[in-house]
């Protein structure tokens, strides 16, 4: 499984700026473009857009998003550039990243 999502030790090269970075990156979530700040996790980028759930459970089709925030609970899984089951709380956004959730289609939480 290869992906562009790999975050190296130093993070993606970007202009060093103290405080908040000015630039933005564009990612796509379920085919729809979203703006995010470089250095953000995917989870944080989605939540910033009001998307708090991107997966539904297998049995009860319950919505899930971030929970533990540190890679422990696996509630936040999604597909990043084709690599399945990536943890949204750990993967950093980068330009052009294609992200897919797995909410059951009729539940409306992706709208």
């Amino acid at each position: 499984m290869s992906t562009k999502a790999q975050r190296g030790a130093g993070g993606p090269a970007a202009a060093e700026q103290p405080g908040s970075p000015q630039e933005t990156v564009t990612i796509s979530f379920d085919g729809r473009p979203l703006t995010a700040a470089p250095g953000q996790s995917i989870g944080s980028a989605l939540v910033a857009q009001g998307i708090v759930a991107w997966r539904s459970t297998r049995k009860g089709a319950r919505p899930r998003g971030l929970f533990c925030g540190i890679g422990i609970c696996f509630d936040c899984l999604l597909t990043v550039d084709g690599a399945t089951n990536q943890r949204a709380c750990l993967v950093e956004v980068c330009e052009g990243m294609q992200i897919e959730g797995s909410c059951t289609p009729d539940d409306g939480s992706r709208a």
Partner: peptide, 22 residues
Amino acid sequence: DLPGVMAAGGIQAFLKGNGSLP
């Protein structure tokens, strides 16, 4: 298990890692 419920430390980690709030 509703979205929006998080671990307390997870909120802290979100803030420290992203500089924003969930």
